[in-house]
């Protein structure tokens, strides 16, 4: 079946619940190399998103995602606010007016989100950031869609790649964001942003 706005809303709710459950874990990852607030910030942002979702219950996918982005920007507090906020805002713009998402639409939305993070964070892959989970996920999604695999399989592949990407941040040295202040000492810790990013992809595959 083609995912529609209802699926998107359900995914956002599952993501919010997962962020809430993983709040302390994400914060503990951030305590090692950042300012120990990633889980708290993301949970606060998505709690606010949950409050906002009823106002867009009848809206198109683009409007839903833009509302999420705007809410994150004004409630998260740390750098994840503008980064995730920009990702959702750009995806929302790319998917304006859509009620359903064909695989190519979803891909376009993810690509816009990824480019938004690149532009906002002036970052690229290999710097121990959320892009190190997002980049591999996007590659896997694109490859699966181009190979005409079922969409559910494509999402599964993306989620696996995101998870592998998040784990692969552990040996990296951070060169962007607060963790970069630590230089060599950032090596050996998994990046919290990449971890939360992977969580969003996991939540697309759950509950089916």
């Amino acid at each position: 079946m083609t995912p529609d706005r209802t699926c998107v809303l359900a995914w956002l709710r599952r993501s919010a619940a997962a962020l809430h459950e993983q709040r302390d874990y994400l914060t503990s990852l951030d305590a090692a190399i950042g300012d120990a607030d990633h889980g708290i910030n993301m949970d606060r942002g998505f709690t606010a998103v949950l409050d906002k979702l009823p106002t867009v219950a009848e809206a198109d996918v683009g409007t839903i995602l833009k509302t999420v982005g705007a809410t994150l920007v004004s409630t998260v507090g740390g750098a994840s606010g503008p980064l995730y906020g920009t990702a959702f805002l750009r995806a929302g713009t790319a998917l304006a007016g859509r009620q359903e998402l064909r695989p190519v639409d979803a891909l376009a939305g993810f690509e816009a989100a990824y480019e938004g993070i690149v532009a906002r964070g002036k970052a690229q892959r290999g710097e121990k950031t959320m892009l190190d989970a997002f980049g591999p996920a996007l590659d896997a999604l694109r490859a699966a869609i181009e190979a005409k695999q079922p969409f559910a399989n494509a999402l599964r592949a993306a989620a696996d790649a995101a998870q592998a990407g998040a784990l692969a941040t552990t040996p990296m040295m951070a060169t962007k964001g607060r963790a970069s202040y630590l230089g060599q000492r950032s090596i050996g810790h998994q990046d919290p942003g990449a971890t939360s990013l992977a969580l969003f992809f996991q939540m697309m595959t759950d509950g089916k």
Partner: peptide
Amino acid sequence: LGSAALIAEM
């Protein structure tokens, strides 16, 4: 610091 710049750019 940090995210203040990102927010200001937004």
